[in-house]
Design a protein around this nucleic acid. Structure first.
Lengths: 405, 405
DNA sequence: ATTTATTTTCTCGACTGTCGAGAAAAAAGC
DNA sequence: GCTTTTTTCTCGACAGTCGAGAAAATAAAT
């Protein structure tokens, strides 16, 4: 269904456009903004004046300039315009970060979550307390927080901020909007972790100027995550995190942590590899956690020619390759970025992956998708958080603009 | 990347909105348009005046009215504003239709395509000649054709009108834009057949007022087609036709018509079912064509308790069910509409489908997707053609509007 | 020191668009 | 013929973008 437009919406969209240009390039002068956005100079004047009035951007003072002519005045997002909180939930710890509107990290601490398998309720309390602590340490008021961006592995509801299933909490549903209550003015966002990796990679690729249509990020670890970024008709990136790890691979993959049989993860997740390598029956209940050193040992064995270990990695690679072939059958060919702790075994997985990929019509018609490696997953996740949260905040500001009279 | 907006774009969007309201509801009065679109009465006056000036809409004369007050004047798309040609390419025949801008069918004929396995070049000539014939029969000039909408089974390029792979022409790529040359003013659109079914079903659902997020259409026949309609962030339906039939199902499915092994189609397509029922080795080269009577015999056998026939349908259902479970793993849960000639065996497939679906985490978490039946595939395809073509034409008219001074 | 050239920012009027209110139109009821 | 009712049309206010040119501010030239 189409929806009606109006002159006010035009201003909103163009304001958001200006903000996004400033966010991407840092600090820009009037003329540069005009060039980047394609808007007329007069329009830039009007929009920057408005954004400055409501305190979203400010003239940056230091003019490092040679050249003649009237000196440029640079605009940049006003860093103390507001703040965002970023929370990364992983199986062993929860990382809380505070950044300003300029995207600069101000504070960060981790909380181990060894014992609170007590469940969601206990976690909820600790979570709320940690946010308080973060604000207190930096002396920032709750009203100045424009967004709380949370990430976890698992399945996230498309709307709202509900965690439907996660390796950490299982089926216990977690609604972060409820959990935080209505004391928070800012928006509360929940994203799948690997979605954020895809987001970060897509933004990187765009800044490099490549005009790619879509990309996928696959995170290898105890579980398998997938993030997808596809350019929508409007030119924006649509990111999503389909349930790749628990897509059905083949019955032979055995019992998965989720309770089903034959998930991709059951073959390609750490516990799956371990099970195959040690020839444990495939319907054995999966290990809760496999230390990296354990995996390293298996990998070392595989590299030294130990048959069963090599076979385990090969089977994992095959599961991934076939999974990716299904992915591009159901979407479209796109480059794949592999990341996560399992990346260090990429050499052992690669052969199986290629073999799996070869099996699909699409690959045979259009060639193998490009498979690249993306190190430093944690940094990418954090970058994705900031991208997404600050873009959303920019949108809010552009929308609010004319109301704040 | 966001893109700049302007007041002219506002008019374009609102014009398109008015046109789409008129297209959906037929003929509407000034006040009704305002109600439907949410636009102010004054705006409706301006837009309808403009659209009437360029000849896209006209006041419909017959006022069937009681009630007092000033009589309404109804606007409706002006049927002779232009024409669209619809071409359905199927394995045994090509159907050419001509409809006017109001969506009314004016002329139609079929051409058998028994012998022209000569290939794309010969087909191209016959195709162009058929379009000429269609115009001649109705006395319509080429310039009045606003769109040529073509459909086929197979893989269609996301941009342009290129058929990348099809059961009819195989790997021989067919570019309909080249094929028709530059003598055609209107736009040339190529869509996968089942995509159009999804389009038609989505429009039907929307007119019924249901607010569904997404749906999938699966066409069962000699090959297996999938059409997907998902509501994008802007509220519009995004339709696509992923390569479901040639997604890898399981190696056991045997040799597929596309040359790969283990496609969904190799198990669930007519030739796959036939192969299993007759216990032909699964790497036998698939039958080019299986007559429906042949399939009916196998189905009759299955219904009377013939083991191997029942097994064949069950395996086909299983392949579909597992395929759908992968689909909703990689997208989201959505209702499934089954259509196509294979629909008549739905009773035999159903059990296997449900079994396959049960295996995924998502189904276990969120329940079975609704599986419904959509009869009359050909009508749906035609409706989808008109929907898509006329919507595109409406967009063109809204865009052109202010230029045609 | 003054002038000139250059570059950037700002401002003004024209244009396009939407909206609300009320005038005008056209039919039915009295 | 007058009133009531309903719909359409029109007018002025307001919001936004754009192009052109004025104004500002500096470096180089004289």
């Amino acid at each position: 269904m189409l929806t009606k437009s109006s002159t006010e919406l035009v201003r909103q969209q163009n304001s958001a456009l200006v903000l996004s240009a400033l966010r991407r390039r840092g600090a820009l002068a009037h003329t540069e903004i005009a060039e980047q956005t394609g808007l007329a100079s007069a329009t830039i004047s009007a929009i920057t004046a408005e954004l400055e009035r409501i305190g979203a951007i400010a003239k940056s003072e230091h003019h490092v300039q040679g050249g003649r002519g009237r000196p440029r005045v640079l605009f940049a997002p006003k860093r103390d315009c507001g703040y965002v909180i970023v929370v990364r939930i992983s199986s062993d710890l929860v990382q809380y970060s505070l950044a300003d509107y300029g995207g600069v990290l101000l504070d960060r601490f981790d909380e181990a979550r060894g014992e609170d398998h007590a469940g969601a309720v206990v976690f909820g309390r600790r979570f709320a307390a940690a946010l308080e602590r973060l604000l207190e340490r930096s002396g920032i008021a709750r009203e100045q927080v424009l967004a709380v961006s949370i990430s976890s592995k698992g399945l996230v509801a498309a709307d709202g901020a509900r965690l439907l299933w996660s390796p950490v909490f299982g089926k216990e549903e977690l609604d972060f909007t409820d959990l935080l209550g209505d004391e928070w003015r800012g928006r509360i966002m929940l994203s799948n972790e690997t979605l954020l990796v895809a987001q970060a990679l897509a933004v990187q690729a765009e800044n490099k100027g490549g005009a790619l249509r879509a990309l996928a990020a696959i995170s290898l670890g105890h579980s398998i995550g997938l993030g997808l970024a596809r350019r929508s008709r409007s030119g924006e990136f649509d990111v999503s995190a389909p349930n790749f790890g628990h897509m059905l691979h083949a019955a032979s993959a055995g019992l998965c942590r989720c309770g089903a049989h034959g998930c991709v993860e059951a073959a390609a997740g750490f516990y799956g590899i371990l099970r195959t390598a040690f020839e444990v029956p495939s319907d054995t209940i999966p290990a809760k956690f496999v230390p990296l050193v354990e995996m390293d040992k298996i990998a070392a064995g595989a590299r030294q020619g130990h048959r069963m270990s090599a076979y385990a990695f090969r089977q994992a690679g095959l599961a991934l390759g076939i999974g990716i072939s299904r992915l591009i059958s159901l979407y479209e060919p796109m480059p794949i970025f592999v990341t996560g702790p399992g990346l260090r075994y990429f050499d052992l997985l690669q052969k199986g992956m290629e073999e799996g990929l070869q099996q699909s019509l699409q690959v045979r018609l259009q060639g193998m998708p490009e498979v690249a490696v993306a190190a430093d997953e944690q940094q990418l996740v954090f970058d994705g958080h900031l991208n997404r949260a600050l873009t959303a905040v920019d949108g809010d500001i552009a929308t609010a603009g004319h109301q704040a009279a």
